[in-house]
C-alpha cells in the first residue's frame, strides 16, 4: 500500500468520505430534480416561445425586419391608447371600434417587453461577429448558467472531507508515530494535501455533473451545441459551444473548490480539534469570500472569492490567471500546513 493509496483509503473509508460524497450527490440530485427555482425575466417566456416558432433558426435580415416592424406596430398601438380613450369618451368612435382597439392594445401590452427583448437581440446580432447567429430558446440555459454560484452542498461536503484528513491523526494519536518516522513530515503533509485536493476536485465535479444531468432531464439537450455567444449575457465567447462552456465552467469551479478544501486544512492542523476546526473554517471562508464587499476590484475577486466567480464569466474571466492564482494559493496553503504540521509543540 503506497502512502497515497493509504491516505485515500483513510479519507474515503476510515473517515467515511465515500459516504459523504454519495450523500452529497444524492442530495444534489433530489434538489435538482424535485425543486423548482423561479427566475424573473423582463419578458414573457410563453410569448417568447410563440415568437420563436416563427423566427427559430438562423438569424436573417428578414427575421430582423419582421420583428422590428412588429415592434413599431406594438409601440404605435400602445402610444395612441390615451387618444383612443379620449376619442371614445368624446363620442368620436363607437364602443365596437374602441373594444376592437382595446383587444389590440392588450395583446400589444402583453407582447411589448418580449418583442423589445427580441429587437434588442437583433441589434446585438447586428453588432456582433465571430459566431453563428441563431435564434433558439435560451432562457433556461441562461438561467442555469447565471445561477450556479455558491453551492452549499459542495461546501459542507468538502468540510467533511478536508477537516478529518489531518484531524483524525491528532484524535487517534497516530500523529506521534507519523512525525517520528523519517519521511513522515514531508510525505504525509504533501500526500494528504494532494489527496484532499484531488478528491475535492473530483467530488465537486461530480456534484456539478449531477446539477447538469438534472438540467438535461428537465430541459433537454437540444440547444447545447449552439454557440454560447447567442446568449446576450455571454458576448465574448466567439464560437464556443454551450456544452463546452459548461464543461469549462465545472472544471474551473471544481478547481476553485479543491483549493478551498486545502484552505480548510490549515485550520485543522492549527486547531487540532474537529468541532472548532469546522466552525473556524466556515467563518474564515465567509470572511474571505465577502472581502469583495470592501472593494470592487477584479483582483480581489480572483484571489478571495473564486467560487463565486460566475458573475465574471460574462465579462473578462481570465482562466489562465485564475489557474496561476489557484496554483499559487495551493502552494502557499501547503507551505503553511507543512510548517504547522511539522513544528514541535511548545
Amino acid at each position: 500500500m503506497t502512502v497515497l493509496s493509504a491516505e485515500l483509503k483513510k479519507i474515503l473509508i476510515g473517515n467515511k468520505g465515500l459516504l459523504v460524497i454519495a450523500a452529497a450527490v444524492i442530495l444534489q440530485l433530489i434538489t435538482g430534480l424535485f425543486t423548482t427555482r423561479f427566475y424573473e425575466h423582463s419578458y414573457s417566456v410563453d410569448v417568447y416561445k410563440n415568437y420563436l416558432e416563427q423566427i427559430e433558426g438562423e438569424y436573417t435580415a428578414e427575421k430582423a425586419e419582421y420583428i422590428n416592424s412588429r415592434y413599431e406596430e406594438i409601440s404605435e398601438i400602445i402610444s395612441v391608447h390615451k387618444i383612443m380613450e379620449d376619442r371614445y369618451l368624446n363620442g368620436e368612435i363607437t364602443l365596437e371600434e374602441f373594444s376592437a382597439y382595446n383587444d389590440d392594445y392588450f395583446l400589444a401590452s402583453a407582447e411589448n417587453e418580449t418583442v423589445a427583448y427580441i429587437v434588442e437581440k437583433c441589434m446585438y446580432y447586428e453588432n456582433s461577429e465571430g459566431f453563428d447567429k441563431i435564434f433558439f430558446f435560451e432562457t433556461d440555459i441562461e438561467d442555469f448558467l447565471t445561477s450556479s454560484g455558491m453551492n452549499y452542498i459542495i461546501f459542507v461536503m468538502l468540510l467533511c472531507l478536508a477537516i478529518p484528513a489531518f484531524d483524525s491523526e491528532f484524535q487517534s494519536n497516530a500523529v506521534s508515530l507519523i512525525l517520528t518516522s523519517r519521511d513522515g513530515h514531508k510525505k504525509t503533509a504533501f500526500v494528504k494535501t494532494a489527496a484532499v485536493f484531488f478528491l475535492a476536485f473530483l467530488s465537486s465535479l461530480l456534484i456539478y455533473s449531477s446539477i447538469f444531468i438534472c438540467f438535461v432531464i428537465k430541459n433537454g439537450s437540444a440547444n447545447l451545441n449552439q454557440p454560447l455567444s447567442n446568449i446576450m449575457t455571454f458576448p465574448f465567447y466567439g464560437d464556443l459551444k454551450i456544452i463546452n462552456f459548461i464543461i469549462f465552467d465545472c472544471l474551473i469551479k471544481s478547481l476553485c473548490w479543491a483549493v478551498t478544501s486545502v484552505f480548510f486544512m490549515i485550520f485543522t492542523v492549527l486547531i487540532k480539534n474537529t468541532v472548532f476546526s469546522f466552525f473556524v473554517s466556515v467563518f474564515a471562508f465567509f470572511v474571505a469570500s465577502n472581502i469583495r464587499i470592501l472593494t470592487d476590484s477584479t483582483a480581489v475577486n480572483y484571489i478571495f472569492c473564486p467560487v463565486n466567480l460566475s458573475g465574471m464569466y460574462g465579462s473578462d474571466l481570465n482562466p489562465m490567471l485564475l489557474g496561476i492564482i489557484s496554483a499559487a494559493k495551493t502552494v502557499i496553503y501547503f507551505f503553511i500546513i507543512y510548517k504547522i504540521w511539522t513544528k514541535p509543540r511548545n
Binding site: 502512502v3 493509504a6 483513510k10 476510515g14
Partner: peptide, 22 residues
C-alpha cells in the same frame, strides 16, 4: 495509546509506516 486505522489490516499499517520510514 497509539492510534491505528481500523479500516487497515495489520500488514497494511506496517506497509504504510515502512513507506513513511523510507
Amino acid at each position: 495509546n497509539p492510534g491505528f486505522y481500523n479500516s487497515f489490516s495489520g500488514y497494511g499499517v506496517m506497509k504504510y509506516f515502512a513507506d513513511l520510514k523510507g
